[in-house]
Amino acid sequence: MRRGGSWFNVTAITLGFAFLYLPIVLLVVYSFNASKLVTVWGGFSTKWYVSLLSNQGLLDAAWVTIRVALLSATLATVLGTLAAIALVRFGRFPGGTLFSGMVYAPLVMPEVITGLAMLLLFVAIGFARGFWTLTLAHITFSMCFVAVVVQSRLVTFDRSLEEAALDLGCPPFRTFFTITLPLILPAVVAGWMLAFTLSLDDLVISSFTTGPGATTLPMKIYSQVRLGVTPEINAICTILIAIVATGVIIASIVTKRREVERQRAERLAIQGV
């Protein structure tokens, strides 16, 4: 049966990945286009990258974006990890259904609704809009993504190690930091990276919740895209893609290496016995 379907599988994968990657590859290729016309190839050039460096508005926006992303990803990781522990370990508590509902809803909630709702909250309590409202909004939606990533790791977690530590008199707080956290760390790091990229990429929620002086890179890109496609936007998009791709690839190599090491340690342990 498998052999009969294999040409089909190869075709499906090839076409599927061509569809996923071709537009991104073209975008990257045309960022090195010497011609101002985005669709006419005028030879290889890196001049658009050079001209980015003198675009002060874009650099300011990049700086705001990175600060918001670092701060919101870190806090979202702490809150999201706590939420995941609450969901997996303390399954049933008063209001637990409401809690899990609030964790899962932002994953699919249309961004226009979340953005509008948060803006109206900030206006209602008289919070001046800007860097901090942007950060609070980003923490709130990305902590839910962190919670789901960490949760999936906690579900498959071997609790006997924790129980052993507790039985030997290790206080819960210390047990968490010496046993639990190191074991779920790959998921926590993946959660942080996801929160970071979500914050880096967000346009809609940011547009609603930001204020004067806190324009992010996606907002800047969006306002330029509306005016038309330019090689400069291709260049800035290429840089963002490169940052995300490098991060994801490094993370997956590190995880894979750790996995191989763990398996070897396990084999040695079994042989030792």
């Binding site: 537009p23 991104i24 975008l27 990429d201 346009l203 890109i221 936007i233 998009c237 893609i241 995300v244």
Partner: peptide, 11 residues
């Protein structure tokens, strides 16, 4: 993981 906006822009 790549920005939504960038992927739409590519099209």
């Amino acid at each position: 993981w790549t920005s939504f906006l960038i992927r739409v822009y590519a099209w």
